[in-house]
Design a binder for these strands. Structure first.
Length: 262
RNA sequence: GGCAGGUUGCCCGAGUGGCCAAAGGGAGCUGACUGUAAAUCAGCCGUCAUCGACUUCAGAGGUUCGAAUCCUCUACCUGCCA
């Protein structure tokens, strides 16, 4: 999403794009906050435009929530900075368990779904309750897409191989000038979401002297591995995904056959 | 060569006679998940297993009813002296 966050996010280069139009790259300044709701809207708009041109939209990447927000019927109930700030402050003062009690009084169903220690989700549930006056739906929907003719493909890879590749990727990021990229991003440190991005977060900590460069590299590697595992576990639960060996010689043919059959 | 300190489970690190399979953290595995999701949170984490049993705290031996904790020797690491 973010402009100038190229190396750390492994953004496809112009050469790699080979003339194929890529959407939703470079749509945000680093100081802007990213959100699923906005992404959902932007992605669905892009898909509609591609379909109007009678082309096949291909969505690549990412985290399960973002993917599902686009393809499945998720409706996000809105947000309000003031309300959010109020509950965030309450969280800091009272602590998560106390907030959870308040949630339990207002929305027992949501409280039952959210652990009393998970402050972030409690705050959101309270915010939604206050904004909509209705209960907060704290469960993901069934995997039923709003799009027909959807084909989902996952790349299957051994964790050992995955780990090796992540180590390589992070080393490559550093070799490509990742630290300089982060240093040059004005306003990144104070940004709400961009500063939390994997790698960027670690380099910021390094630049402010909290950790050494070796630690920043090591933490970026383990952080990326944990992230990859978490997303893999989530994706595995989606029965629609066809898992294909990442290194199959005929990978493209396999995908094309799936497209024909779905 | 002399003196002093150290060696704990995958890693770091508490533990100085019984309440120790051994605190805590990290890693790892698993799970939850609707506006920060590259986020937030939770469970498991020596082995086998139902209570429970079994093998561990550098190695070997010893003291003791009982040792990761005390003693002896061996190996390796570290600091001061030279």
């Amino acid at each position: 999403l973010y402009r100038q966050m190229d190396i750390g996010s492994a953004k496809a280069t112009l050469a790699e794009r080979q003339g194929v139009r890529h959407h939703l790259l470079d749509v945000l300044e680093v100081t802007a906050e990213a959100s699923v709701a906005q992404f959902q809207q932007l992605a669905r708009t892009a898909i509609a435009q591609i379909q109007q041109r009678e082309r096949l939209p291909i969505m690549v990447g990412g985290s399960s929530l973002y993917v599902r927000a686009v393809i499945d019927p998720l409706d996000f109930p809105g947000t309000d900075p003031a309300v959010r700030a109020k509950w965030t402050a309450a969280l800091a003062q009272l602590g998560a368990p106390a907030l959870h009690q308040i949630l339990d009084e207002r929305d027992p169903a949501a409280a039952a779904q959210i652990l009393a220690t998970n402050g972030r989700r409690i705050v959101r549930a309270l915010e939604v309750g206050e904004l909509t006056g209705r209960p907060f739906i704290a469960q993901l929907p069934k995997p039923e897409s709003i799009y027909s003719g959807l084909t989902m493909v996952g790349l299957d890879i051994d964790r050992e191989v995955l780990d090796q590749r992540i180590d390589q990727r992070v080393d490559q990021m550093w070799a490509d000038g990742f630290v300089a990229e982060v240093s040059a991003l004005a306003g990144l440190a104070d940004s709400l979401s961009a500063s939390r991005a994997l790698g960027y977060q670690q380099v910021l900590a390094m630049l402010s002297g909290e950790i050494s460069e070796a630690e920043a590299i090591a933490q970026t590697k383990t952080g990326t591995k944990k992230f990859a595992r978490r997303q893999d576990r989530m994706m595995r639960k989606d029965p629609r995904i066809h898992w294909l060996a990442f290194d199959a010689d005929d990978l493209v043919d396999q995908v094309l056959r799936l497209l024909d059959s779905d």
